[in-house]
Write a protein that binds this DNA or RNA. Structure first.
Lengths: 191, 191
DNA sequence: AATGTTATTAACATTTGTGTCAATAGATCT
DNA sequence: AGATCTATTGACACAAATGTTAATAACATT
């Protein structure tokens, strides 16, 4: 499939690899054919963006819907985000200000709600704010891990094994945030 | 300054905004002058990358060296990463696989060591592994926040105020990870 | 098989980004 | 002022990316 080849080019060569000539050559077809299908070079990129985002959501969904223990789930989640295709996608979106639709509409919207429900159930009796904060922390950390995990690891002088264990460590830590958590209101008046 | 204009173009128009013609026009000079200074278009981008990275490190350094309370520091750290210039820089680096030098050499190396020392001091008697994990969590989360914070916030249905309070919340949570923390060894044998 | 439709191609055309060069302007030094 | 150097410019040249077109190939429908 054409978009798969384009996705590989994004992962391997960055944005500059996303031109119709090179992609067509990799696919062994004429570049005019690409234009005929997608209408324009920009249209091809938009299609790729949508496609890759859907793939990311699907992968996340598969992980988060499994009934594995928390640390395993987080390990998988972080591993997922470190895949070149996925972190390059997020970087690309960030650069192009593509904060619109795909991440907040359609299947992903349902997925997020699902996660939210699951976490809220676990922290029964507490504020939904807490669930949101915890999820936000986990996901943002996973994204940051994908974007500059290797560089950070090097800066901090972390060993290979330690970096590998970090995702599971996060999975173990998050439950601590649930225990002894003040309500959002107390929280606000604390300092 | 030329690089300041180039940086603004990166923040406003993404990577495609980083071409000598547009930058020269924004700066009101001939594009040949730009080439004369930086040698090539690629040289200009390299200079910009180095320059922006140094600026990011400097900003982070200023925050982390202040003697403000933890939650304030985290608030500032997250706010910093959400600035368009800084998160676009990281996205750019991620896309171009620019994981080399600047983040791990020179002033930033000293900065990281400084942070590591500070955290290690606070968790005296414990493994340095813990300090590294905590810093890794905070920084990766801050990066993820900068890259796709707004999109995540929207997906999770977080209110404006809650999103604003998230950085401070993180600052409050991290100390909990220090309490009752098993050593790295126990940790490894746990599951 | 005849027809209409869509996919594919090669060749050309346009636009955009990059680089070169010779001439000029400005600065510095004696 | 004269000599020398650097900075800047406009004009041109080149390369790369995108888009267009007319012809052909492949396919489906009747």
């Amino acid at each position: 499939m054409i978009l798969a080849i384009a996705g590989k080019r994004l992962a391997d060569h960055g944005i500059r690899g996303l031109n119709i000539k090179d992609i067509a050559q990799d696919a062994g077809i004429n570049h005019g054919t690409l234009l005929h299908h997608f209408g324009s070079a920009e249209g091809m990129r938009t299609a790729l963006l949508t496609n890759l985002t859907a793939a990311l959501i699907a992968d996340m969904s598969a992980i988060l819907n499994s009934d594995a223990p928390a640390d395993t789930i987080f390990m998988e989640l972080f591993r997922l985000m470190s895949q070149s295709g996925h972190n390059k996608l997020l970087a690309w979106r960030a650069l192009e200000d593509a904060e619109y639709s795909p991440l907040t509409e359609g299947p992903s919207e349902k997925l997020i709600q699902q996660i939210l429900d699951g976490v809220t159930r676990r922290i029964q009796g507490r504020d939904i704010t807490l669930a949101q904060n915890i999820i936000f922390l986990a996901l943002s950390s996973a994204v940051g891990w994908g974007i500059c995990g290797p560089a950070l690891k090097q800066s901090l002088g972390m060993s290979r094994t330690q970096q590998d264990q970090f995702p599971a460590w996060v999975g173990e830590q998050l439950p601590k945030l649930i225990q002894d958590q003040p309500t959002a209101h107390e929280n606000r008046n604390k300092s």
